[in-house]
Amino acid sequence: SDYEVNVNGIHHRFHNISEELIKFIEEALRRGEDLREIIKKVRELLG
């Protein structure tokens, strides 16, 4: 049904976003950045 496609589409989009965010955060932590600064950047990215 349309509803299922829609829900799956939304889930898929969020899954991709969270994968990208996790990579972004892991790389920043590897560079020794402060978690609070990383979260601030993530918030800015998400608008």
Rank of each mutant, 00 (worst) to 15 (best):
H15I: 12
N16C: 03
E27N: 12
I39A: 08
E4G: 02
E37L: 10
A28Y: 10
S1T: 15
G47T: 12
R36E: 09
Y3C: 02
I38W: 03
E27W: 04
R36H: 10
I38M: 05
H12E: 12
E33K: 08
D34H: 08
E44S: 13
E19A: 09
E19K: 08
G9Q: 02
E27Q: 10
K41R: 12
F24M: 11
E44H: 13
G32N: 15
I25Y: 01
E37V: 09
D34V: 09
R31S: 12
L45V: 11
H11V: 11
R36P: 13
N6E: 13
G9D: 07
R30A: 07
A28W: 11
R36K: 11
R43G: 13
K40F: 09
L35V: 14
E4L: 05
I25L: 06
L21M: 10
L46H: 12
V42P: 00
R30P: 04
I17Y: 01
N6Q: 07
G32H: 14
N6L: 05
D2V: 02
H11S: 09
R43S: 14
E26Y: 05
E27V: 11
H12W: 02
R13Q: 13
S18L: 04
R36A: 12
L35E: 03
I25S: 00
D2E: 08
E44Q: 12
R30L: 13
E26R: 06
N16Q: 04
E37Q: 11
K41N: 13
G32T: 09
G47R: 08
G9R: 00
E4P: 03
S1G: 09
N8E: 08
E19I: 10
R30H: 15
I25H: 00
F14Q: 01
L46G: 14
I39Q: 06
E37H: 12
L29K: 05
F14L: 02
Y3K: 01
V7I: 12
I25K: 00
I10S: 12
R36N: 14
H15L: 10
H15E: 14
E44P: 06
I10M: 15
R30G: 11
R43I: 11
D34N: 07
N16A: 04
A28I: 07
L29C: 02
N16V: 01
E27S: 10
N16D: 15
E27C: 05
D2L: 00
I22R: 07
E33P: 05
I10A: 10
I10Q: 15
S1D: 06
E20V: 13
V7S: 06
S1V: 15
K23F: 12
S18F: 05
E33F: 06
L29W: 04
E27T: 14
N16P: 00
R31P: 01
R36S: 14
E26N: 09
E4I: 06
R43P: 08
G9I: 02
E37R: 08
E19G: 08
V7Q: 14
R36M: 13
D2M: 03
F14A: 00
I10W: 01
G32W: 07
S18T: 09
Y3N: 01
L46F: 06
E4K: 01
I10L: 07
I10T: 15
E19Q: 13
D2K: 00
D34E: 09
I10F: 04
V7F: 06
D2Y: 08
D34C: 07
N8S: 10
E44F: 10
H11F: 08
G47Y: 04
D2W: 06
E26I: 08
L29S: 05
Y3W: 09
D34R: 07
G47V: 11
V7E: 04
E33L: 13
E19R: 06
G9P: 00
G47M: 13
I10K: 10
R36C: 14
G47Q: 15
R31C: 03
L46Q: 13
I22L: 05
H15S: 10
A28L: 14
V42H: 04
V5H: 01
R13Y: 12
S18Q: 06
I25N: 00
I17M: 11
E4F: 00
I17R: 00
E20M: 08
E4R: 00
S18I: 05
L45F: 09
D2C: 06
I38N: 01
H11T: 11
D34S: 07
K41A: 14
E4W: 00
I22K: 07
S18W: 03
H11I: 11
L46V: 15
K41T: 09
H11Y: 08
D34P: 12
E26K: 10
R30W: 12
G32Q: 15
A28D: 10
G32I: 03
D2G: 05
R13W: 11
I10E: 15
I38E: 01
R43H: 15
G32K: 11
H11M: 08
N8H: 07
E4A: 03
H15P: 08
D34W: 07
N8G: 15
I17N: 01
R43K: 10
K23A: 15
I25D: 00
E27D: 14
R30F: 11
E33N: 12
R31W: 08
H12N: 03
I25W: 01
